[in-house]
Each structure stands twice: as structure tokens, then as C-alpha cells.
Simulated scan of single mutants.
Amino acid sequence: MKDTKDLLDILTLSDEGNNNFSGVSKDIGSPNVFGGQVLAQSLNAAYRTVPEERILHSLHSYFLEAGNLELPIIYNVQTIRDGGSFSTRRVTAHQNDKTIFILACSFHRKEEGYEHQMPIKKDIKQPEDLLSWEDMRDQFGDFLPKKMKAFLSIERPISFKPVQVVNPFDQKDLPPIIDVWFKLKGDSTDLNLQMKQQILTYISDYNILTACLYPNASEANFGNTQMASLDHSMWFYRDFDFSDWMLFSVESPNTYGARGFACGNIYTRDGKLVASVAQEGLMRPHKKK
């Protein structure tokens, strides 16, 4: 995938009838299906069954099995409730006879109410002053670990610019925080809010568990630790557009028992809080042979 159009092609499912939808997968550098893809495809399926005026406000999900990149994924949507203001859906994702993922999500008709939000970080470096993943690959590729260079070399529809750039050879513990600017590649105009939420859900599974790894970076890294998303929740607040850079600001309150927990907020560049994310992930050290 190289741009927004390619991403939309992956996220938009085929209608198989009886609230069943089918999707294919795209490799992003992992041996298994990317969790953000399953999240966003499940949301695409759910949105196809709710009244048009109702907008997603929260989702909660569990990753049950690793997805096979070569097999189609079938998403079944159950209508749990359609009330006067809210609609609730349950989505299960299957490959062959195996359930690999479950999602519960709730949609709300627009209403007026009170408002406040946590502000964006002050004095944070702007994306123009930072290197993207592609820049890092081009400038430092010959010095990077092989797996990291391969990961950074994969073509993606999103550009990422981390605020905190870490030297992979400088093994020292770091604060449990990560801030990453991101921007869609290609034309992102004419996207409705439903599709923007699906794309944001896809992006939200990138980078988040890195904050869990940082406090143990003197001994833990992506090469010696098995990492995978276990659950994922999001809350959506305000409309937005993808025309400018957005900031994903993440912190990890806790890592323990081969699991790490991280949560974060997603902002527009002008400081509008768009969504919040929480995830627990597997962080299992590889056993030394």
C-alpha cells in the first residue's frame, strides 16, 4: 500500500449477505495480520449495519488468534440494540472455523452538550523538524539492525515522524512515553467521518506498545521480545480531517507479567483532541537457548 486509496481498498469489505462481510489482508512487515487492519475492517462491517446518522463513539476488542495473511477474513455483525440514541453492534472475525477477533462498538446520534478536553503538549517538536521513518531508512539504513531496516523499507499509506528518536544500539532505559506525528499519503479529501474513523482506528495500532518497551530498553527490544496486541479500546470525540499532521501521544503506566499497558490521545496539529486509545499487549521475553 502506498497511499490513502490503497488503504481504503483494503478496509472496504465485500458484502456476502446476512450481515457477513469478507476482507483480504496486506503485509506490513509482520508474519501475521496487522491488528489495526482487523480493527478497522471490523468497524467497516459494523458501520454497514447502523443508521447513517449514528456515529461511532467507542469500541472495545480482543485479539484471540493470530490472523493468516493468506486467508480471507469473514466478519459477522450482530445487532445487539438500536435505541433512541445509541446503536450497539458485536463483530466476530473468522478464518476457516476459527474466531480470531471480537469487537463490541457503540454508535450515537449527534447531540449537543458540555465540552472540555486535555490540551496537547506544549512546545512539542513540529513535524517539519523531525525525520520520518523513510528519512531514517535513507540516512541510517546501512547502520540499522537488519530487521529494523526491513520494517522501515515497507511501503505504507501513512508517514510517521517520531518526536523521540532512539538509537537502537544505545541500550538504556527510557521514560515510558512516545509521541509520533502521522499523516496520510495521497488524497484524503472527501472522506466522510465514518471512513476517517476507520482509518484512524487502523493507525492507532501502530507505535502504541513501544511506550511499554522503553522503560526496559537496556535489555528488551523488538528482536528479543514477542509482542502482540491483546486488546484494544478507543473513544472518539470530534470530527477532524487528515489534511495536516496529527499527533499520537502515548504513555505506559505499567508493564508486568509479560503484559504491557499503554494509553494515549490523538490530536490535530492545532490541538483538537480527536480520540483516546488504550491497549494491553503481550511482551514475552524470548527464552534463551
Rank of each mutant, 00 (worst) to 15 (best):
V165H: 08
L13D: 01
I158P: 07
K121D: 13
K110D: 11
K185G: 05
T4L: 15
I102P: 02
E111M: 07
N167L: 00
H94W: 13
E134P: 02
A275M: 01
G113E: 10
P176L: 09
Y256L: 15
H116L: 13
A46M: 04
F151M: 10
N221P: 04
F261K: 02
W133N: 14
S14H: 11
W181C: 03
E111V: 12
N32I: 06
G84L: 07
F222A: 13
D187Q: 09
P119N: 12
S22Y: 08
F140Y: 15
N216L: 06
Q197S: 10
G35D: 03
L230V: 13
H286Y: 12
M227C: 10
L174W: 00
Y47S: 14
L230D: 05
N216Y: 12
K287Q: 13
F182L: 07
A258E: 14
D241K: 11
A220L: 13
R269T: 12
K288W: 07
L131H: 02
D241P: 08
E219M: 09
L13F: 01
K121S: 15
P253V: 10
S276T: 15
K122R: 13
N18K: 15
G257M: 09
S30C: 06
Q41E: 08
H60V: 11
P72K: 09
T4D: 05
A262R: 05
E52T: 11
